[in-house]
Write a protein that binds this DNA or RNA. Structure first.
Lengths: 219, 219
DNA sequence: GTTTAAATTAAACAACTGTTTAATTGTGAT
DNA sequence: ATCACAATTAAACAGTTGTTTAATTTAAAC
């Protein structure tokens, strides 16, 4: 049955989500301060008052953009960490794969996330993003420490090892043009949807982290 | 002899440089769009017209901030690369040390640099920053490739290896609070002036890159 | 059809933006 | 003292900002 109320409700959600989607693009491209509500309203083809009607303010829209993704961001790492059937190095490999997959799937959002890590202007948002990162750091650090305890890993710096993993991906994600230079591709190419690109990054990080972590038994 | 003209000239330079110094701090903290000329003028204790008087515009001030440091940014890598008396791994170690030293010495500027890499709003500035990064990438990649050619290095991904080096430092530099969490220090601590912090980062990266690059000869 | 409430709109709001102007001050050379 | 010019200032400029208002439209419930 065609229920007009459901249709309307869906349209309404779509409109809100449409605004959020466009906002994500603009924030990623121009930054938070660089994006005006009028820009956003025009690109999303809605009235400028709708942003405040739906979200209350520009800053709250931004907060909701982050909050909406945060739940999903945390879930994977927690799932991997609590999976008892995986060895420590398998967990690390899963986390690397998960990070790259997630970041490549939502490059726009990730750039917004990085901006907020970089700019301390909006203190509470900055703290929020920071605390999320710290949670992830703690999880991965405890995995590496367990590997060291089991004498499977070298006595490395666990915190900085995690930072190298995330830092590598972030550095790659910082600019589309940079990715295309890496892939020797043309400027209009979209590297984030290129499976070869994804494979290349995952293999590099895993290879490097393996060499860094795993104790080579002299035969 | 006390020459009033020299004094004035010095004062004048000092005033310009004073504005640039304060601008660097504000841009790093609030971003380019987030920093208003009135903010800057107030914090630097100058008239708001002085910025346009000295630099022409806010954007030109920003460009000059970058341009002023760029020369110094390139010099070290080029010097290391052309130094014939160094082995490939020594060159890499020097570059790692140089990067960390430079970035820790000018954390404010570096955050501005990263912001410009992240935000594509000011296209020409973005391209400029990008091309600088590509130059450095090419230099380091050619060092790694030479190491591979000489069968001293494993057949790694040279581009992504460089990105891991820079990415690790950038990730650390992204937030002062993050550094303090790493060092288990209090919030008001300045990690960028802590020699222990510097040592820890350099040792981690060098250790990781060594494991990643150097072929372990089975004895 | 009437009612009720949500959705949508154009217009106005006050505050802030980067920049320019025109007047004034300070300084060194003549 | 006078001149020329750089430095400095407060004020005004035109445009944009995020947000609010008050009016209008839409659509479901009765």
């Amino acid at each position: 049955m065609f229920d007009i109320r459901v249709f309307i409700a869906l349209m309404s959600v779509d409109k809100k989500e449409h605004i959020m989607h466009v906002a994500m693009e603009l924030f990623a491209e121009k930054g938070f301060e660089g994006t005006s509500i009028r820009d956003l309203a025009q690109k999303a083809d809605v009235n400028i008052a709708m942003v405040n009607y739906y979200f209350g303010s520009k800053e709250k829209l931004f907060e909701q953009l982050l909050a909406d993704k945060v739940q999903f961001m945390r879930a994977k790492i927690e799932a991997v960490e609590s999976n008892e059937s995986l060895t420590e190095i398998e967990k690390i490999d899963h986390i690397i794969d998960g990070y790259v997959t997630r970041f490549l799937a939502q490059p726009d959002f990730h750039r917004v996330f990085l901006q907020e890590l970089l700019v301390t202007q909006r203190a509470n948002l900055h703290q929020h993003v920071l605390s999320l990162f710290e949670k992830n750091t703690r999880d991965v650090v405890s995995i590496i420490e367990k590997g060291i305890q089991k004498k499977q890993f070298k006595k490395v710096d666990p915190q900085l090892t995690f930072i190298s993993i995330v830092g590598t991906i972030n550095q790659v994600m910082m600019s589309k043009e940079m990715c295309n230079t890496l892939m020797h591709a043309s400027t209009n190419h979209n590297p984030y949807q290129d499976p070869k690109f994804k494979k290349r990054i995952i293999e590099h990080i895993q290879q490097m982290v393996h060499a860094h972590l795993i104790i080579t038994t002299v035969s």
